[in-house]
Design a protein around this nucleic acid. Structure first.
Lengths: 192, 192
DNA sequence: ACCGCTGTTGAACGAGCGTCAATAGCGTTG
DNA sequence: CAACGCTATTGACGCTCGTTCAACAGCGGT
């Protein structure tokens, strides 16, 4: 089999297996057996277990960032809600896999964490790009260092709330949730 | 050595070692060597590696909850800021250990996660206990199911922001940060 | 002095990661 | 067509580490 397709196959398989197991439990042993190859071959494509894990996580994060690319909408608040909605939908559809990803990112090694954080950063930065300075001003937000800290916090909150909402919606509809999260951003940014 | 003191010694040592290593890297091997005992003895006190990890995490969480017990202050917003401050101080002082705890909780198994989440729940619930309904109303907050979701999210945000602030304060003083986080709670709760 | 309890050990087993020399298949070249 | 080389692939080996278990040692009670 050609190098690229084999590599692709292994990464794809690894991503799938992540739905059932933790990243830690995603052993070379299981993967090799599942792929019908010898353990040794994995070391031909990925130097070691960690490198393989990193490759799987990178793939998953890229997928997430690509899929949730926001559309162009006039009203900033609605734009924001739609962006969060795309993210929400992704999380709902890939729930088990996404949970594994988040846990892997939080508990994993330096490299895995960095990749995940860069993904999160990309998602958040899009808000500041898509909504230009004028639109941000329209929300009452102006970019500043201290603000960044809080906006990143809002990102963590959003991630957490969405995961909790999937477990138990607490009587909130999808639209309610999106609106709450959207208005929370300017609320956090403005509150002093 | 007596059972209790030995158990205590091992847990204490485990907690210390957590400053240097991940929970996953906190091996039976290292612990036994560091404690000057045989590996086998650990299985006399803790059934297996996981149980030991659980015991260490439980200990750390209990410590956190106990130390950050809030004082009684009239002004609800200041009360809140003081509570967050106690938490912040704990995180600053036990930084490496706390980071290990958070990562262990996020990446760990079911049991470890549950213990951590119960700890977080206890911290947040205190806000609703200490600040009685009247004081909460004074902040414009009334307890409701959908609100709980957002308040838990605020908890996640607080945790995240504090860890980020320690890495890089972004020009915010401790007081600035506490105030921002404190006002963020009613802001999130009120925003619709 | 004997007995039993229990804290403690060390050896042994198995799972899983990582290494490496050897092989097999295939395209290239003389 | 045969020899060659490249590389995907294998299988066996060694090592670390979690886990088990039979044996021992010290000590209090009878």
């Amino acid at each position: 089999m050609s190098p690229e397709s084999r590599r692709e196959q292994l990464l794809e398989l690894g991503t799938q297996l992540l739905s059932t197991r933790t990243l830690e439990e995603l052993s070379i042993e299981v993967l090799a057996e599942e792929a019908g190859i010898s353990r040794g071959l994995l070391y031909h494509y990925f130097g070691n277990k960690q490198e393989f894990h990193v490759a799987v996580v990178r793939r998953a994060v890229e997928q997430l960032v690509a899929i949730t690319a926001p559309r162009d909408i006039a009203d900033p608040l609605e734009q924001l809600a739609v962006s969060i909605g795309a993210y929400l939908d992704y999380v709902v559809e890939n729930h088990t896999g996404y949970v594994s990803l988040v846990r892997a990112a939080a508990g994993g090694n330096e490299e895995v964490r960095t990749i995940y954080e860069e993904g999160r950063r990309a998602l958040i930065d899009r808000i500041f790009e898509i909504n230009g300075p004028e639109q941000l001003a329209q929300l009452g937000i102006e970019d500043s260092p201290g603000l960044r800290l809080m906006v990143d916090g809002w990102g963590a909150m959003t991630e957490s709330v969405i995961l909790a909402w999937i477990e138990d919606p607490h009587g909130l509809s999808r639209e309610d949730l999106l609106h709450r999260l959207a208005v929370a951003l300017p609320a956090i940014a403005l509150a002093r």
